[in-house]
Structure formats: structure tokens, C-alpha cells
Simulated assay, not measured.
Amino acid sequence: MQQTSEPTGGHLVLVTGAGRSGTSTVAGALHHLGLHVPLPVLKTNESNPRGFFESTWPLWFHRRIMDAADIEQVDGRPGARELMHAAADQAVQDELVDWLRGVTADASQIVVKDPRASWVPHLWVNAAAELSLSIGFVTMLRHPAEVLGSRSTYYGRNRKGQAEERSFAVLNLAGWVNQTINTEQLTRGQARTWIRYDDLLEDWRGQMRAVRQATGVDLNHSLEPGVRHAVDDFIDPGLRRHEGSFADLDLPGSLTEIAEELWAAGNLLADRSGSDPEAEQRFDAAATAYATLFADSAAIAQHEARARVRAESQEAEARLRKRVRKARREGVAQGRAEALAERRGLVRRTASAVRRRLRRGNRS
């Protein structure tokens, strides 16, 4: 049974979902509708000209946990979730509580957007409970082919050749699959809503009504049609530059099938207020299928991985031997130079001693 948010000491809305899914757009809309985005925030750039609405403190907070767990933001390993949870100890939890206590001192409604939060939503749930805050999750849903296209445009420009392009796409799709599974399973039972990116662009009022219903936030607009608001100028449907289809992408069919199933299950959640037994069963089945696919792929790749390890080991040994030979040569040369210098010094000292004796003999 999905929880509903009851107003208590304030409201915290956590925006999740894969990067390039419209998380900045929904966070910006909530900001214009009266929710506070803690400062400072990321600056605009070419990939997000209207702003990220992403507070920097949560970004670095999550990154520190990821570094400790040795995982990437777009990490396709099913076991990455457990690594993150193991790295998020009580000290990490206390750090989040302290920060959240500070930002809620002057604002009763907070929106935090960071796709990395999907790894550790329990930290935010626990922190909100300790501070008597109602917490709700807004997850953005965009077809994975569109996400890949957007990520390729802005984050994959240094790839060289078709092999690197395909590897980039496969890794990112695996990351999307894993993150989408984690986002759904780890927020299950919480107050939440799922929003399709297309729906947000076409009818932001309807989607904000869903957010208000799920999270209990107060908005500074009635959301009635025809009543103009700043969000009308903020949301630009023209920002959608990529279409959702795997038809033109060279990707493994077994992986795209799982991605399409997650897309369909996510659409059920978007249509059914963020909670639906059928959708959750489909997510669990997709998670099992993906874990099997990942394990099989890792097993197949073992020969290649071992070969790379051997090659890298051999290269490292060759470099070490080269450095040793160089050091020996330099050491021999230095020894010869030192011996020659010592010999010259001995000759000078001997000649000086002989001259002194001769002078003494002449005086006598």
C-alpha cells in the first residue's frame, strides 16, 4: 500500500530518475511553483540552458558515497546497490540530517533534485523522519532510447569509431536499466508519482496536480487552465530533441527487451498514481531477467577480461624492467664518474703533499 504524505514539520520532495529524463524541468517547475531549491546550484550550460535546479551539496554528498563504494553514476552492476548501502553508514546519515536541518530552518517546502539519490533514497526517508518532514518522490520517466540519444549528444562527444560508440550506448542502457529498477524498488511504499517527460511538456498543470496529490505540497498556483503562470514560459516543448525508438540503434536485443519492459511498467505507474501491483511485479521480473543477463554476460567476458589483465600485467612488468635497466645504467655511469672524481682528487692531494715535502726539504 502506497503511503500518502501528511503535512507535519514541512515537505521534502526528492526528484529522481535517470539523468536526461527531464529531472531538471520538473525541479524547475516546482521551484517556480513556490518550492525552495537549496543554494548553491549547478550553473547552466549547453546541455541545460534553462538551469539544472540541482543543489550542489546533495550532488557532492552522493558522489562521496559513490567514491567510497567505487561505483559510477550510471552503473550497470546489479550489486552496486548493496555497495552503496554498505558505504552509507551512520556518520553519513547524520551528515545528511545536519544539512537538511539547516536548509529547512527557513523554508518549509524543499525540492532536491539529484539522479544519484536513486541509489540511497532510504537515507532521505530516515532524515525526513528524524526532522518530522513529509517526504515524497517524483520520478521522471523518458524512453531509454531518448535518454541514450541525449547522453550521446552531450556526454559522449569524445568517442572514436563505431566500436566505442556502441560500447558507450550499451553501458548507458545497462545503467538506465539498473537505475530504473533501483528507483522503483527502493521507493516502493513511499509517497511517490511517476511522470512521463512528454506529459510534463504537454500538460504541466496536470502533472503538477499529480505531484500535489502524492506529496501534499502547497503550490502558488491554482493549476487551473487559462490562468497563466511563470511555468508556461519556463517549460519549452522544443527542448525535446530526441525521439524514443531503438530501431536505429545497434544494441543487444536481450538488453533492449528488458528496457522496453521497464518502460512499459513505468508507464503503468505514471498512469496509476505511482503505485500498481502489476507494474511492481513486472519490475521485479525485469530485475531478475537483468541480473541473469548481467551474470551471463560477465561469464562470457571472463576470457577477454583475463586476457586484458595478462596484457596489462605484461606491459607493467616490461615498464618495470626498463626502469630497472635504466637505473642500473645510470648507477654504473654514476659510479664510474664518482671513481674518476675520487682518483683525480687523490692525485691532487698526493701532488700537493709531495710539493709540501719538497719545500720543507729545500728549506732544510
Results as ranks from 00 to 15, higher is better:
Val92Arg: 10
Val92Thr: 15
Asp94Leu: 08
Val97Cys: 13
Val97Trp: 09
Asp98Gly: 06
Leu100Val: 10
Arg101Tyr: 01
Gly102Arg: 13
Gly102Ile: 00
Thr104Asn: 10
Asp106Gln: 14
Ser108Gln: 15
Gln109Thr: 11
Ile110Ser: 11
Ile110Tyr: 06
Ile110Cys: 10
Val111Asn: 02
Val112Thr: 07
Asp114Ser: 10
Pro115Cys: 08
Trp119Glu: 14
Pro121Tyr: 02
His122Thr: 14
His122Glu: 09
Ala128Met: 05
Glu130Leu: 13
Leu131Pro: 07
Ser132Lys: 12
Leu133Tyr: 00
Ser134Lys: 05
Ile135Val: 15
Ile135Phe: 00
Phe137Asn: 01
Val138Arg: 09
Met140Arg: 04
Arg142Leu: 11
Val147Glu: 01
Leu148Arg: 13
Thr153His: 11
Gly156Cys: 05
Arg157Lys: 15
Lys160Gln: 15
Gly161Ile: 14
Gln162Thr: 09
Ala163Lys: 11
Glu164His: 00
Arg166Gln: 11
Ala169Lys: 10
Ala169Arg: 14
Leu171Met: 11
Ala174Phe: 00
Gln179Asp: 04
Thr180Asn: 12
Thr180Gln: 11
Thr183Glu: 08
Trp194Ile: 04
Ile195Tyr: 00
Tyr197Leu: 13
Asp199Ser: 15
Leu200Thr: 09
Asp203Cys: 12
Trp204Asp: 04
Arg209Asp: 05
Arg209Pro: 02
Arg212Lys: 10
Arg212Glu: 15
Thr215Val: 06
Gly216Glu: 06
